[in-house]
Design a protein around this nucleic acid. Structure first.
Length: 277
DNA sequence: GCGACAG
DNA sequence: ATCTTGTCGC
């Protein structure tokens, strides 16, 4: 059963309202979101489509940093096996030069929305934005300058995936990193794609991924010498694809960039600890 | 309508 | 997302 109200919804509406992201009708639209979580899948999808297109108008696929890039944040959510509700979300903040953890926080949550491919953001963004807001209030000195989430940004059917929605909702520069290719028309795991992967020889090598409309929406990036399989990097918000790739390449010791990797380890560990007690 | 499908 | 040890190779 997912018949419960997301307790973050008030925060979310307020946040969007304050950022001047929503007019009257759109506020109504977001107010209805918890009700929509209870509806059937086709209704959810129709509604999510509308919200995506509303929020998409705010996304910026260009570099607009304020100040210097110092802290990189990573977000990940881990789940309990056979339990669709209980999960743990972790935020890790690293110094981009030394790659040392300067801050981390995790929190037990319960998911209110099922996973629908293409609409991952509606499942994860409420929790991410809540955690970020808390960090911004409690320890603003460690608030990340750029955030890496594990999920796509612009590399998405509607060019508006998790990283975009998180970036826009929280108004933070955001990069999307996916471990698998999100397949859609014009971008498939076919032989052409596989042969392009084979051409990636050294860390930092990448190739563009294009839309059906021939727009560059993301990159396959080889992060280390050891990993044959690339990660898929795309713009989230307030970063260009070029910058996104540079940030990801810079903080990759292993295939998955450190912030996301450490967040994954931390949230998994926290989940195991809470299971014992 | 059917299949594919980030986490 | 989750289950899951060792093992082969640089």
């Amino acid at each position: 059963m997912n018949a419960c109200w997301p307790n973050s919804i008030a925060d979310r509406i307020f946040q969007l309202y304050m950022l001047d992201y929503l007019d009257g009708w759109q506020i109504l639209a977001v107010l209805l979101l918890p009700l929509i979580y209870l509806c059937r899948r086709p209704i959810k999808i129709a509604y999510f489509n509308i919200l995506q297109s509303v929020l998409k108008r705010r996304v910026k696929f260009s570099d607009c940093y304020i100040g210097q890039l110092k802290y990189v944040g990573g977000i990940d959510i881990s789940f309990v096996k056979d339990d669709a509700v209980h999960a743990c979300i972790s935020l890790v903040v690293l110094d981009i030069e030394s790659l040392e953890t300067v801050f981390s926080r995790n929190k037990m949550i319960h998911m209110t929305c099922e996973y629908i491919p293409g609409y991952l953001a509606f499942r994860e963004t409420p929790h991410i934005s809540k955690l970020l807001k808390k960090v911004r209030d409690d320890c603003p000195m460690f608030y990340p300058d750029v955030l890496i989430v594990d999920g796509n940004g612009r590399l998405h059917r509607k060019e508006f995936g998790l990283a975009c929605q998180t970036g826009v909702t929280c108004d933070i520069p955001c990069v999307g990193v996916a471990k698998n290719l999100y397949q859609m028309e014009g971008c498939l795991r076919d032989n052409e794609h596989k042969s392009a992967i084979d051409k990636l020889k050294s860390p930092g090598d990448k190739f563009e991924i294009r839309n059906k409309k021939n727009t560059v929406i993301g990159c396959a990036l080889r992060t280390t010498a050891a990993s044959t399989k690339p990660v898929y990097v795309s713009e989230g918000h307030r970063v260009s694809l070029d910058t996104a790739c540079r940030v990801v390449a810079k903080c990759s010791k292993y295939r998955v960039p450190e912030p996301v990797r450490l967040a994954d380890i931390l949230s998994r560990e926290a989940l195991r600890q809470s299971e014992k007690s």
